Computed example of a mutant assay.
Amino acid sequence: MPMTKVLKEADITKALTTFKAPGSFDYKKFFQLVGLKGKTAGEVKAVFDILDKDQSGFIEEDELRSVLKGFGPEGRDLSESETQALLAAGDEDHDGKIGADEFAKLVAQA
């Protein structure tokens, strides 16, 4: 399913443009700009499923690195420090990956 089935294309473009520069990523601001904040639990889960490229039930570190590309082809890879910061913010059980519930909590913090 394309991300535009859940989020508005204009919001996705605005959010990706805002965080185009390496080192600029702020997940809270990104989730707000992209329109994810305020979506239903089902919609947040749908976005999680899109970002979980291997459908393992988790967003692993390599999937986190390319999280912006999951929102649109013009997205960039996160830097190592941005990836680690996002993982640290969302990985409550410290297993090195973010599950659907952890992702929902991460979005709710935005």
Rank of each mutant, 00 (worst) to 15 (best):
S66E: 15
E60C: 06
T17V: 14
T13A: 14
L51S: 11
L51N: 12
I12F: 04
G70I: 02
I12N: 01
P73E: 15
I12R: 02
F30S: 01
S79I: 09
T17H: 07
F31T: 12
S81F: 12
V67M: 12
D52E: 11
F30H: 01
E63I: 15
K37C: 02
G70A: 01
A46I: 12
V47A: 14
A41R: 09
K39R: 15
A21W: 08
L78R: 12
E61P: 04
T40A: 11
G75L: 08
A10Q: 13
V34M: 04
L51Q: 09
Q55Y: 11
D26H: 06
G35S: 03
G42R: 02
E74R: 08
G35K: 06
R65H: 13
V44K: 13
V44F: 10
R76V: 13
S79R: 12
G72E: 01
K14D: 02
F48S: 14
K39P: 08
G70W: 01
L33Y: 05
P22D: 14
E43M: 04
D54R: 10
K69R: 11
E43W: 00
K14M: 06
D77I: 13
K45W: 11
E9P: 00
Y27M: 00
G70T: 02
T17I: 13
A10K: 10
D77V: 15
G57L: 01
F25V: 05
E63H: 13
M3H: 03
D26T: 01
Q32C: 04
T17K: 13
G75R: 10
E61L: 13
A15L: 07
D62P: 14
D26S: 02
V44N: 08
L7A: 06
L36P: 00
F19R: 03
V47E: 13
L51R: 09
F48D: 15
G72W: 05
F30K: 02
G23P: 05
A10D: 14
K28P: 04
A15I: 03
G75E: 06
G57Q: 00
G57C: 01
K8D: 05
S24Q: 07
K45L: 14
S56C: 00
D11V: 01
L7I: 07
D52N: 15
F71N: 04
G75N: 08
Q55P: 10
G38K: 11
F48L: 15
G57W: 00
L64H: 10
T4Q: 01
S79E: 15
G38A: 07
